[in-house]
Simulated assay, not measured.
Amino acid sequence: MDLLRAADSGRLSIVKDLVSKDRSLIRSCRHSDAKNRSFNIDGTAIHYACRSGHSNVVKYLIKQDPSIINDLDCEAWTPLHYACYNGHFDIVKFLLESNADVTLRDNYLFQTPIQFAMYRQFEDIVYLLDPNAEWTRRSPDEITTKGKASIFRKNSNLFLGRYSLNEDHIKQIQLFRNDPQYNDIELRKIQDNELSNLNIRLVLTHDFKKHISQTISLTSDVDDDSFLRSSSTSTNEHIMVFKDE
């Protein structure tokens, strides 16, 4: 497992081992396979730990090299952009305490991290970044009709495409996605193609506050645990990934 995937899945013991052997990997290990869209080109370990919600890895990497706090991938996303986009309040707070630049804009939509949080309706993060923020919230109907991302791309590694989903998995996810009031679903015995076909289980919910609360409660300072990643494919759809033990 390379440094990117170790950071993405919260394998702090592997991150420590790799960095101890070559500290330059923190900056030099960058995603370069344009066909693999599960990572952004030029993304580094700090980006993907921030995306997946692993504060233990984020804190370790920043301690090893504080200069990566505003590192950019090919779309000029900083670690703070990733944390804001995926709603990881505790990581956003840590990055702010570590002097992350809140004014940097990406090079596609020219947005700052707080604008990412506003678009995703992550109110706690918005007001953490700016207690006096004024912004227009999207209506539930708009979120439902316009906030979805196409994730059923069986031959790609984009979002859920990185997992080996069978027809029953896809059917359950489609039912979940078609109804914003649908109960949480849990899918088991799925292979993660990015992590050497590791068996995982997926938990999907529409309830963002519940999702974030669970993410924070599961993120710890232990080197490795069953929690692999937490992310959102839309404002209305949130995913947690665990090792299926």
Rank of each mutant, 00 (worst) to 15 (best):
D42H: 14
D141S: 15
S67N: 03
D223F: 09
L72E: 14
A7F: 08
E97I: 11
H88Q: 14
S9V: 02
K93L: 09
T205C: 03
N36C: 08
P66R: 10
H206S: 06
I212P: 08
L175F: 09
L187P: 06
H88L: 08
I125K: 06
F94I: 07
S98T: 08
E186W: 07
D65Q: 10
A83T: 12
D224K: 10
S139F: 04
L165V: 01
H54L: 12
I173S: 02
T205K: 00
F159S: 00
N197I: 02
S20R: 04
L165A: 05
R5H: 09
A133D: 11
Q121A: 06
D8C: 12
T145N: 04
N86I: 04
L109M: 11
E245I: 14
V203N: 03
I170W: 06
T144N: 14
C74N: 12
T44L: 00
A149C: 06
L18R: 09
D8L: 08
A34H: 06
P131G: 09
F159Y: 13
T112C: 12
Q115M: 08
D2L: 10
S234T: 15
L129G: 05
I200K: 08
N107H: 00
R11K: 13
E237S: 12
M240Y: 00
T78C: 07
L96Y: 11
I143P: 04
F176E: 05
K210F: 15
V58L: 07
K93C: 13
F242Q: 00
R138C: 00
F116M: 15
G87E: 05
R37D: 06
D224Y: 01
Y163R: 00
I212S: 15
F176N: 07
W135H: 01
L129S: 00
L61R: 10
H47L: 13
E194H: 12
D33T: 01
P140A: 04
W77I: 14
A6L: 08
S28A: 11
K209V: 04
L204W: 01
K148E: 01
F122C: 05
F110P: 00
I26T: 02
S139C: 11
Q121I: 08
L4W: 08
N40Q: 10
G87S: 14
I200G: 03
T205S: 15
F116I: 01
S156D: 14
G10Q: 06
Y163W: 06
F208H: 10
D179W: 04
M1K: 15
S52R: 12
L228N: 14
K63P: 00
